[in-house]
């Protein structure tokens, strides 16, 4: 059970990355490879705020949200907006991700930092397994976030406008939606989210500069399983990837954790390229 808890928690982290991917995908049909690097930055800022500066956790959360949000906004202006072709977007967001990693390495070096969780690091015994408070909170946070975002997209005007824009950019424009501004704000929002979530992600993964690449890829697997553009799908995707990784690592060997996840990715992409939990959209003339 301890393994299940730990797998669910890491799955939740991957799902959080995938949610970031999804928001950008919904608003502008592209991917931000640097999403996970933004989260890595959030973890570092949490470390600095809580350990170095000894600030209260909520203040640290707000600080991280603002800083990372601004960085994301900058990334959109430099690496996304001027680029038209999809292949170049891949390269430029990858570049942004590498730069963030480089900056983190320059400031904090290559060693991981332990980030304390504000609600304590006392192990709890639950359903016959040991679990850290942060692991429970991570699972709760991702579920609440998905519910919240789903409600927002169904009921608020801005959410409806975003969904409309995702389906048909031109038609949304004709209903008065400033699509470029919306795309920008949605992108910056993923930064705000990534920064704030550093509070929860940092204690689980530690703050380390190389966090970006592996989180980015696992987040993508979650997305591939859950379906591009589906928020609810990320929950299932996160669960599958997290558990696979934890179980493979425990019962086959640590070297097989990534390999198993990779196999799942290949099988799913081959069998259902649009994701397991996404209904196939039929094209219309």
């Amino acid at each position: 059970m301890t393994i299940i808890w730990s797998g669910m928690a890491i799955g939740a982290v991957y799902a959080l990355v995938a949610i970031g991917y999804n928001i950008v995908f919904i608003s502008q049909k592209t991917f931000n490879f640097a999403q996970a690097s933004l989260m890595m930055l959030g973890a570092f800022i949490t470390y600095v705020g809580i350990v170095v500066m000894q600030l209260p956790w909520w203040l640290v959360g707000i600080m991280a949200a603002i800083i990372v949000g601004l960085i994301a906004a900058l990334e959109e202006r430099i690496a996304i907006r001027p680029v038209k072709d999809m292949h170049n977007l891949l390269v430029t967001t990858l570049g942004a991700s590498i730069i963030l990693q480089g900056v983190a390495q320059l400031i904090w070096g290559g060693e991981p930092y332990r980030v304390p969780f504000f609600a304590g690091d006392q192990v709890i015994s639950l359903f016959g397994g040991n679990v850290y408070p942060v692991e429970l909170v991570l699972v709760a946070v991702v579920i609440l976030l998905v519910i919240g975002l789903n409600q927002f997209s169904k009921h608020s005007l801005i959410g409806i406008a975003l969904m409309g824009m995702s389906e048909d950019r031109e038609a949304a424009q004709l209903r008065g939606v400033d699509v470029r501004r919306f795309a920008f704000l949605a992108f910056a929002f993923t930064g705000v989210l990534a920064g704030f979530l550093g509070l929860f992600v940092g204690p689980k993964t530690y703050a380390v500069a190389t966090l970006g690449a592996s989180l980015a890829l696992k987040g993508f697997v979650v997305l591939a399983i859950g379906g591009f553009g589906s928020l609810t799908g990320t929950l299932a995707g996160g669960l599958i990837v997290g558990l696979t990784e934890a179980l493979a690592s425990r019962y086959i060997g640590a070297d097989f954790a990534n390999l198993s996840v990779f196999l799942i990715l290949v099988v799913i992409l081959m069998a259902k390229p649009s994701g397991l939990f996404n209904r196939q959209k039929e094209r219309t003339v």
Binding site: E170, A172, R175
Partner: peptide, 25 residues
Amino acid sequence: SYVQEGKRVFHELTIEQNLLLGGFS
């Protein structure tokens, strides 16, 4: 206000959402 050809409503939104979005401007 422009209604494009081919009944370009938002297929994935509900009717009420479509109308609300119509008033966005």
